[in-house]
Amino acid sequence: MITVHLKYEIDPDKLADFEEYGRRWVRLVPRFGGTHHGYFLPSEGDSDIAYALFTFGSLAEYERYRIAAAADPDCQEAFELARRTRCIKRYERRFLTPLETDA
Rank of each mutant, 00 (worst) to 15 (best):
A71Q: 08
R86F: 12
R93K: 11
I67C: 00
E61Y: 11
D46Q: 11
E61C: 04
I2C: 02
Y65L: 06
R31W: 14
S58D: 09
A71D: 05
H5D: 12
K7D: 10
A60M: 08
K7L: 06
P30G: 04
F18N: 08
Y91A: 03
K89W: 14
F54W: 10
D48G: 10
L96N: 07
A78R: 11
R86C: 13
F56Y: 02
Y62W: 07
R24F: 05
M1I: 01
L41V: 02
R93Q: 12
T101N: 00
R24C: 14
E80S: 15
T55C: 10
R66M: 15
L53W: 12
R27N: 13
R83Y: 14
Y51E: 12
A71V: 00
E80C: 01
P30H: 08
D13A: 15
F54L: 00
R66Q: 13
K89A: 11
V29E: 03
R84C: 01
A82Y: 07
F54I: 01
T3N: 02
I2P: 04
R83L: 15
D17T: 04
L6M: 13
E44M: 11
P98I: 03
M1A: 08
L15F: 10
Y62K: 03
E92G: 08
E61Q: 06
C87N: 12
A60D: 09
V26N: 06
E63G: 08
P73W: 02
W25I: 06
T55N: 09
H37M: 08
R31K: 14
D11K: 00
E61G: 07
E92C: 08
G33N: 05
Y65E: 04
Y65S: 01
D13K: 13
D72Y: 03
D17C: 08
I10W: 14
L59N: 09
P98N: 11
I49K: 13
P73Y: 03
Y21R: 00
Y62N: 09
G22P: 15
I49G: 06
Y91D: 14
T85K: 05
T3F: 11
Y21N: 00
Y65I: 01
S43R: 09
R24I: 08
G34K: 01
G33T: 04
Q76K: 05
D17W: 03
F54A: 04
P73G: 00
Q76D: 04
V4N: 04
F32M: 10
D17S: 14
T101W: 07
S58K: 10
M1L: 10
L81M: 13
A71L: 08
D13I: 02
A70V: 00
Y8A: 10
Y21V: 07
E61S: 11
I88L: 01
G45K: 07
L6A: 00
S58V: 12
A60N: 07
V29Q: 04
H37K: 04
